[in-house]
Structures are given as C-alpha cells and as structure tokens.
C-alpha cells in the first residue's frame, strides 16, 4: 500500500531500539560495502562477529524499517533524467493528489511540506522526454500546475549520514 507515515508527532513511537552491532553497521557501512563475493562475511570479520550475526542484524533493521535496503546511491544526473517537482494543492485535495502522484513508478520521494507549495516529489525517468511527459500527465490529470526545479549543480557528495546515538 502507499505509505502515509506521519512524519512528526502523534503515535508515540519512539526511535527504534538498536543493538550495538546494528549501530556499528550503520556507523561503518553506509558506504564502502565490500566488493568481494561474500561482503557480509567481510563486514562481520571487520566487526569481530559471524556472518550469520550480520545478516540477522540487517534483517532486524529492515523489519524495523530503519534499513531501506543494502544498495547503491546513484549520483543524480549521471543516469537518466530527474527533477524535483512541487505543487500547491488545495488542502482538501491533498490526499487525492498525493495518491495520484505516488502511483507513478517514476516518483520515488513524495512529501507534504508546510508551505503554499505543499506537495514535493522527486521524479526520475530514463530520459528528459519521458520526464516531461510524466509532469504533463500529472498536470493534466489534476488540473494543477507543477513547478519543475531541475538540478543544476550538486554540492554534496553523499557519504551517508553520521548518526548521533545520544
């Protein structure tokens, strides 16, 4: 199902409790996944545990939804076409329009933000024509205009995020 997680407040769900091994995996392996046939075994060796323990810890992180995936962050602009798009959606139509936008395979992030432009989403596609077609399609189906804010320069090298474990 389309996720509609509440970003803040309510629910009372505190941060997930993680084991020492899970924290070490997050601290040490947001990048530099070993490019060897058994990467989890190599990570286990680096951390002084068994491969099965690393796999179990990662499965636990995935179940807790902390881990989206073990995978690659592809540099924006190098493969295909992408853009950040925004819409000013009347509040009473927000759920409807968000669900419509979510349903596109080309949309990978979609957030409500506190602003007149209240719906923000990232669109990626194999090429610029395809991307343009998706934006026009959304405009046509919602009757709302889409702000298209393509990337011009990236200043941040994505190296993962240093978590303060307080």
């Amino acid at each position: 199902m389309a996720s509609t997680d509440s970003e803040e407040g309510g629910g009372g769900d505190g941060p997930v409790r993680l084991s020492a091994l899970q924290r070490s995996l997050i601290d040490g392996f947001q990048r530099g996944l070993p490019l060897t046939p058994r990467p989890y075994a190599a990570m286990a060796e680096a951390l002084g545990v068994r491969e099965s323990e690393v796999l179990e810890a990662l499965r636990g992180l995935q179940e807790a939804r902390v881990l989206s995936r073990v995978g690659a962050a592809i540099r924006p602009g190098t493969v295909g076409a992408g853009t950040l798009a925004a819409m000013a959606v009347p509040p009473e139509r927000l759920d409807e329009v968000a669900a419509l936008v979510n349903a596109y395979g080309e949309v990978n992030h979609n957030y409500r933000r506190e602003h007149v432009y209240n719906l923000w989403f990232v669109v990626t596609a194999p090429d610029a024509d395809h991307l343009e077609e998706v934006l026009r399609d959304i405009e046509g189906r919602t009757g709302l205009s889409v702000l298209n804010l393509p990337l011009e320069e990236a200043y941040h090298i994505d190296l993962g995020f240093p978590v303060q474990w307080s």
């Binding site: 996720s3 509440s6 295909g80 936008v101 596109y104 979609n110 957030y111 194999p126 399609d137």
Partner: peptide, 30 residues
C-alpha cells in the same frame, strides 16, 4: 519547509521501461 508527512520514500528507478505507467496504486508502496 518542514515535512509533515511522507507519502513515499524509496530508491530511484531510473531505468524502468516506459510501458508500465502509471502503476496500480496498490503497488506503489515504499
């Protein structure tokens, strides 16, 4: 601009074929 709700968050699919759009809403989870 604080985000107040996350409707979708997953990796980008740059290379999917063109013919599959739009996905059925039920397939659009994270």
């Amino acid at each position: 601009l604080f985000s107040t709700r996350r409707f979708k968050q997953r990796g980008a699919w740059y290379l999917q074929g063109g013919g599959r759009r739009p996905e059925r809403p039920a397939a659009a989870g994270e």
